[in-house]
Every structure is written in structure tokens, then in C-alpha cells.
Design a binder for these strands. Structure first.
Length: 521
RNA sequence: GGCCCCAUCGUCUAGAGGCCCAGGACAAGACCCUUUCAAGGUUUAGACGCGGGUUCGAAUCCCGCUGGGGUCACCA
């Protein structure tokens, strides 16, 4: 049983997606349940619509939770341990807090914000460690009457834990990623329940909820590592069994000469939505993340082509202890490989889904004649050497748009034809000769026919021949074919010409040759 | 600054005392193939942060240093 427990701040970080991925995998490969719990105890930071965004992102990346908040609507909540939204669990936390107060393990604190900053200043002046502890914990040993007096004035207390001071015992625990760890025990009287709304802090909600919801492994970001002693203390005060822990190193990037955690403010690629918008197939993002999590994933992928990544067994103890640098180039490579495994139908389906959301005009073109679109995506696809030129759906129009009439026409209007070093008169000669030629023959026959044309017009039959005596030729066969390519596509780099010819059909072929010819005169 | 974590090619990493003058992938270079491009094939360059131990033997174990990161809230 594992959980993904984000707070609804309107932003899903790529590191969170990594955590959710690891959580879901670990739960599923041990026959457990992966659920989503919303940690909305800080009402100030909450953003409208962010719960929907979280669920949607999880669904987009194929990490739909089994329980908890599982869908946007209509039936949002599933599972036996509801509610899965912390603000709806208030009485539960209060009950646990009362239990602690009754035992003298927690106490009400009426310290104001200004008193707290005052304490901090004093600690700074004395050069002692900051915080609410020992002699600085001004409400630690107040009498019941003093508490009642505040209450009578209508003041609401925060509930703080009574930490052992000055000699907390050393905490030893095992982390499934980091290994055996030893840290000084907590001696700070941390807040359990907040004064303004009596909602719990993360530190308190985590032991309570994860126990009640039967979480047996807590997988979360490494930023929580320093507060593990506090958490363990709360579990012990409450008399609850400890879950397992696994702390994931954050994903970082280079900023000048220093490394830092991917930042929500500075780095667009920190947002999970970035990948969705750019049109990276979800499988590519997930496989990239899997590769960061367990680097032997790529060996597994090579050995098991076509097998869904859900079959891959993730090993927590193989995860890196240090922060990896995010590498967009590597993601692109993986994405290219992923798309290369897709059938033409799949490319059409995924590409269209992306375009409908982010490029509606191109979507309309794709949908106009689905069979034609699929035929286009079928060029150089399948077989042992599938074409690997598409990284993400965002690039689809640039790479394949010219095979559709409207984008082709628009491209010519914008850039015209780029004949390069071939003289216009030669271009005309080539096109005139080629325009009527038959291509309803095998590829080899067609290429031979083209080569014959090329040689007849003074082009070298191949690059090698040309290089031996460049002065004797107008160019080599490649130069000749480039003229055909540009006339047909308006571009200098395209997939295989023979396949293009057959895919776009003789009507378009004729029209395009004719258009190029008129453009010359 | 205190506490904690971490440290192998540019990047992600393999490596659990001899299998390692350190292996793979991405990126870079070269060559081959080739109707352009993208691929594909072959190939080159590229790392154990430093200093001490332990040991017949250390990338691997221990100590110190250095460097990087995280965290020190009534945010999560």
C-alpha cells in the first residue's frame, strides 16, 4: 500500500510525477494499492482547480490511482479509508491530538507570531540554535489556569508536541533507498495542530493518515529526510507501528556552475504539464523517469521490446542516492524510440489527440481524410528500420505537414522553392522530363529510371563518380534527386521519395510538378 | 552556521576487495551505407575528487579533507 499525497497548489512537479510513478510501481508489483490523498491543510496556498489538475496529470501519464481521489467526476472518491482529503478529516486529527494532550505528550501553545520572532532574535543574538524548544518553549509548562485564561479571551491555541529536551535519543532507521541512517532525535516542540484552523501540519497528518490508511511504505522526496526523527517520535508517542521509508533524491539541473533542484518558478520543464503540451508521448516521459529511477531499465527495454513498462520490476535499492541532472536530450532520444515503435494508426491517434487540444487547425487537416493521414504516417514505418524523426507531437506538422495540401501550399507561399546550386534552366529540364514519367514500377526500377535521366542530363551516376571529376558533371545523382524532392515537397529533407510518390497519389504528383514548373517561369 | 545526505566519462549510470589499464546508454568526432534527411553499422575520444590507512590486492572497506545537495515554519 503506497500513496501519492500532493498539496493542491496548482502545479505538478516532474519530481512529484517521479514519486507517483515509483509509488504506483512499488504498490502494484507487491500486489498492493496505490491511492491519492489530497493534503490541503494550508488553505492560503491552495489554488482552485488544482485537484482536478493533479488527477488529470496522473491519468494523462497512465498513473490513475486505484483508490482515493480517482477521477475528476462524477465518482471522485473510492476506497475504504475515506475521506481522502485532509481538510475533511479534521475531527480525526483532533482526536489523536487530544489523546496526546491527555498523556502530557502535547500541549496547547498561545505564543503569537511576534513572540516567536522575538524568541528567534534572542537565539540569534546568543548564537544558539533557533526554534521552539526547552527554555524557549514558553508554553511548555504553563498551568491549566493560564491556559483557561487564554481560552476565556477567545484565543485559539496551536497544539505542540512535547519533545524530550535536552537529551533526545538518537534515531536509527532503515531507508529503502538511502540505507541505514542514524540521526539525532528531535528536540523541537513542533506544531501538530495549527491555531487558526485547527488543521494538522504535514508532520502530524502523515503519521495519522498513513497509519489509518494502511500505508506500509512511505515514498517521498528527500526534503523530508531531516524531519524523519520528528515523524518517528510522533508514531511512537501515538503507539503506532512504523511504516517503511524511501526518500527519493530530487531531480536537478545546472544553473551556471551550480546544481539545484528543478524550480517551479524558473524552469518550465519542472512542470509536468510542459511535457503534455509539447506532445511527448506519456510512455516516453514515464520511460525516461524509469530510466532515471533504475538505470538498468534501458537494458530491460532492449531485451523486451514492445512489452509494457508496467512489467518492469523497479528496485528501490537500485535508485540513486544522489540527485540526477535532468537531460532533455536523453528524453528526446527515448521519445524518438518510443514513437518509432508505434504503428501508423497509433501515430495518427496520439498525434490527433494532441493536435485537437493544442493545434486545432492541423487537427482538422488530419481528420479531413483519416485514411490518407494514416497512409502518410505509414511512410517508412514498420519493418526493421522504422523512421526515427519524430520526437514529440509538437513537431509533427513541421515534419509531415507538407504532405497535406494546405500546409504544402502555405509553405511554398512562404518560402518558395529552394533549388540550391542547380541552374533554373536545368531544374526546368529535369522537371519536364520527370513530370510524366511512370512510377508504378518497383523501387529499384524507378531509381534506375531516374538515374538514367540524371546521366542523360549530365549528372554523375553517384557521388563517388562525381567526386573523381566534379568539373565534368552538373552534379551527382543526389543533386538531381534533390530537384525532384523540392518540387514535390517544398523541402530539402523528407522521408523516402518513392514512398511519398505512391502515398500522395498521381493527382497530387502531377499538380505539384506543374506548380513547380509554373513557378519557374 | 548546526544537522543530515551524497561523490565513477560532458550527462544518466554499471560496479557489493581480485572478473576493471573500469562496462553500457545519451551527447560529441570519424568512417561505411545512402536519392536528401532521419536511421543503421563500424569506430575514436572521455571518469573512479584529494590525502592517508586496512589488505598480497581497493572504484569498492575505514579515517580525514574538499566539493555538491537537502533542511533548519503554525508550507507541504
Amino acid at each position: 500500500m503506497s500513496r501519492f499525497a500532493p498539496s493542491p497548489t496548482g502545479f505538478v512537479h516532474i519530481g512529484s510525477l517521479m514519486a507517483a510513478l515509483v509509488e504506483s510501481k512499488v504498490a502494484h508489483q507487491t500486489g498492493g494499492v496505490f491511492f491519492l490523498r489530497i493534503e490541503d491543510t494550508d488553505k492560503k496556498r491552495e489554488q482552485d482547480g488544482s485537484i482536478e489538475a493533479i488527477v488529470q496529470n496522473l491519468i494523462n501519464f497512465g498513473l490513475t490511482p486505484d483508490e482515493g481521489i480517482v477521477a475528476i467526476h462524477p465518482e471522485r472518491e473510492v476506497g475504504a479509508y475515506a475521506p481522502y482529503t485532509q481538510s475533511e478529516r479534521k475531527t480525526i486529527y483532533e482526536t489523536f491530538a487530544k489523546f496526546l494532550v491527555a498523556q502530557g505528550l502535547a500541549y496547547p501553545c498561545f505564543a503569537t507570531e511576534s513572540e516567536l520572532t522575538e524568541i528567534r532574535k534572542r537565539q540569534e543574538a546568543r548564537k544558539v540554535k533557533p526554534g521552539y524548544y526547552g527554555e524557549y518553549a514558553i508554553w511548555r509548562d504553563k498551568t491549566i489556569d493560564e491556559v483557561k485564561a487564554q481560552l476565556a479571551q477567545g484565543k485559539a491555541p496551536a497544539i505542540r508536541i512535547r519533545a524530550p529536551y535536552p537529551n533526545p535519543k538518537v534515531v536509527r532507521f532503515h531507508d529503502h533507498i538511502k540505507g541505514d541512517l542514524e540521526m539525532p532525535g528531535n528536540d523541537q516542540d513542533m506544531v501538530l495542530l495549527k491555531s487558526d484552523n485547527a488543521l494538522p501540519t504535514y508532520h502530524f497528518a502523515h503519521p495519522v493518515d498513513d497509519t489509518l490508511m494502511r500505508v506500509n511504505i512511505v515514498i517521498r522526496g528527500e526534503e523530508w529526510l531531516p524531519s524523519v526523527p520528528l515523524h518517528i517520535m510522533i508514531f511512537e508517542y501515538l503507539g503506532l507501528p512504523l511504516p517503511g521509508f524511501a526518500h527519493i533524491a530530487p531531480i536537478a539541473k545546472m544553473d551556471g556552475s551550480s546544481k539545484r533542484k528543478l524550480s517551479k518558478r524558473k524552469d518550465p520543464e519542472a512542470a509536468v504539464s510542459y511535457y503534455h503540451e509539447a506532445g511527448y508521448p506519456r510512455q516516453a516521459v514515464i520511460e525516461y523517469l524509469l530510466n532515471l529511477a533504475n538505470s538498468d531499465f534501458e537494458d530491460w527495454r532492449k531485451a523486451h521490446p514492445g512489452v509494457p513498462h508496467t512489467e518492469f520490476k523497479l528496485k528501490l535499492d537500485h535508485m540513486s542516492k544522489s540527485s540526477p541532472l535532468f537531460d532533455l536530450t536523453k528524453l528526446n532520444d527515448i521519445s524518438k524510440e518510443v514513437i518509432a515503435t508505434y504503428s501508423a494508426e497509433q501515430v495518427y491517434e496520439h498525434g490527433l489527440a494532441w493536435a485537437e487540444q493544442f493545434a486545432p487547425e492541423f487537427a482538422a487537416i488530419l481528420k479531413h481524410d483519416p485514411a490518407y493521414s494514416i497512409a502518410i504516417f505509414n511512410i517508412e514505418r514498420g519493418g526493421d528500420a522504422p523512421r526515427k524523426d519524430l520526437v514529440k507531437w509538437e513537431d509533427m506538422e513541421a515534419s509531415y505537414g507538407f504532405l497535406f495540401d494546405q500546409p504544402f501550399a502555405a509553405g511554398i507561399r512562404q518560402h518558395g522553392y529552394t533549388w540550391g546550386k542547380i541552374a533554373p534552366s536545368d531544374v526546368q529540364m529535369i522537371l519536364t522530363a520527370i513530370a510524366q514519367s511512370d512510377y508504378q514500377i518497383s523501387k529499384d526500377e524507378w531509381l534506375n529510371a531516374m538515374r538514367a535521366h540524371a546521366e542523360g542530363m549530365g549528372f554523375a551516376r553517384d557521388n563517388k563518380t562525381y567526386k573523381k571529376a566534379p568539373d565534368q558533371y552538373k552534379g551527382h545523382f543526389g543533386d538531381f534527386m534533390m530537384v525532384v524532392r523540392v518540387a514535390l515537397t517544398g523541402k530539402t529533407n523528407t522521408p523516402d521519395l518513392y514512398e511519398i510518390l505512391h502515398t500522395i497519389g498521381s493527382e497530387r504528383v502531377q499538380a505539384r510538378f506543374a506548380q513547380a514548373l509554373t513557378a519557374l517561369t
